[in-house]
Amino acid sequence: MAIPLVNAPARVRRGEVFEVKTLVAHPMETGFRPGMNGTLIPRDIVQRLRCRFAGADVIDVALSPAVAANPYVAFHVRAERSGTLELTWTGDNGFSASHSVAIAVE
């Protein structure tokens, strides 16, 4: 069970630009590495990180095999009204993790 770490402020001022930092535990196996028996280890990566805020898309990231293990993604968001920040990671072998943070706009 992947436990993502998400850092976002609980309250912000209207129109303020704030940073959201995310980390998710994942090996990000590239699919290019040979294993102990010489055959390639199958690819196992997080393919997509999608973030929605109050029903609207904020960021939609396509991750590639070049991304290191335990992907760290940080981005900036501007909020005009209160809402919930919903993050979803999906990837190979049915990997999925999600996390949501309620953000109050003052």
């Binding site: 069970m1 436990i3 770490l5 850092n7 930092k21 980390l23 998710v24 535990a25 293990a69 335990n70 760290y72 940080a74």
Partner: peptide, 15 residues
């Protein structure tokens, strides 16, 4: 702590 990937293990350890 928010950029430190080792904190993923700490969170798992807490669980």
């Amino acid at each position: 702590d928010m950029s430190n990937p080792a904190m993923l293990w700490v969170a798992e350890g807490e669980a």
